[in-house]
Design a protein around this nucleic acid. Structure first.
Length: 344
DNA sequence: GATACGTGGCG
DNA sequence: TCGCCAAGTAT
């Protein structure tokens, strides 16, 4: 296989079928002189970490409408940013997003670094995001490797080594096909291919622009690659959440910065995250039943308790609540406790 | 290097 | 119903 043939076919496919996304500048607009805004590209890439385009789009629109520039975001209160991120998951990303925006304003004059190495030094920016922003915004021929690229390369070269062992080799292979011309469009093309054609299950090899170049397709094993080591079973944890209302206010606490749902608003809870505080105050708590939720590494059955009387709590504080500001686990508890306030 | 860290959709 | 999976990073 000629390496240049791979990027050439991908770029042709991308130009003909590029998907429209709010953070993207289409090839035609770039030809007319438009450049991607590093602030918007960075934000989209952080949101897209382990997250689908479908889930990200509405969040991206809200964030960029509310905070149009990195300086606007840097000036935002922590609680507002965490509330806006609620429901998107991996909340360390939101904390790092804010820390990064503030670092860009404080240490870089409000301008993102224009190299992958410079980006890499910012909070929440790892090898992938640094390379993606540098390639997309500045056409640095950085090697952009995400889960899509790993899958495409494993199939293109029929690499049988299972992940994560195969990772360094996949990065090496990705480097061999990364072009000097239009590396930003190329990076997006490979990721689009992985998201739409070279999918994890049932890849659409028949319409793939790399048909004829792909070793796994020729061998008939595309759908089996990349191979992966078996993952450990998820244990089931049990917990309790305490829901108390006082008039229009609800008893809430801000979770610790580190750890599960870090930095997010939550009902006082116990038993599932290593804590055992007990109820926030003595009352005849009524068990409303349980909500189920699955985290990355365990399943959770969370009993939801409701107080019919209120008292001065030992933890948390009463405050008005917009349920959209809660992480999804706590939103499930809210919906169980206040079914009449749940839309639909 | 291994582990922690969310969520929603799909087959 | 349930396991897998998604444009990863921090420690």
């Amino acid at each position: 296989m000629r390496d240049a043939e791979v990027s050439q076919r991908l770029l042709e496919w991308y130009d003909a079928a590029a998907r429209v996304m709010p953070w993207r500048v289409p090839p035609a607009a770039k030809a007319a002189g438009m450049r991607p805004d590093p602030y918007r590209v960075w934000m989209s890439e952080v949101m897209l970490q382990q997250t689908t385009v479908a889930a990200v789009t509405a969040y991206f629109q809200r964030f960029t409408s509310r905070w149009p520039t990195v300086a606007d975001l840097a000036a935002a209160p922590d609680a507002e940013v965490m509330a806006e991120w609620a429901g998107l998951g991996y909340y360390a990303r939101a904390r790092n997003l804010l820390a990064c925006a503030r670092a860009v304003v404080r240490h870089h004059g409000g301008v993102f670094p224009d190299t992958a190495a410079g980006m890499r030094a910012l909070p929440g920016v790892g090898p992938y995001t640094a390379a993606a922003v540098a390639a997309i915004c500045h056409d640095e021929p950085a090697v952009v490797v995400d889960g899509n690229v790993e899958r495409v390369m494993a199939r293109l070269f029929a690499l049988e080594t299972p992940l994560p062992t195969a990772k360094p080799e996949l990065v090496r292979l990705a480097a061999t096909v990364t072009p000097d011309q239009r590396p930003g469009d190329y990076a997006q093309a490979v990721m689009d291919l992985g998201a739409t054609i070279c999918t994890p299950r049932k890849p659409a090899c028949g319409i793939c622009p790399l048909l004829g170049l792909c070793a796994a397709q020729r061998l008939g094993i595309a759908a089996e690659l990349p191979r992966k080591l078996a993952k450990p079973e998820k244990p089931v944890r049990q917990g309790v959440a305490w829901v108390a209302r006082r008039g229009d206010q609800v008893l809430l606490e801000r979770r610790a910065e580190r750890g599960l749902l870090g930095g997010m608003l939550a009902f006082p809870s116990d038993g599932w995250d290593g804590t055992t505080h007990g109820a926030p105050f003595e009352s005849d708590w009524r068990n409303l039943g349980a909500v189920k939720h699955t985290f990355t590494h365990f399943h959770l059955v969370l009993q939801v308790m409701l107080a019919s009387t209120t008292a001065n709590p030992q933890r948390g504080e009463y405050m008005p609540l917009n349920p959209d500001d809660l992480p999804t686990l706590m939103r499930k508890a809210y919906d169980l406790a206040f079914p009449d306030k749940t839309p639909r």
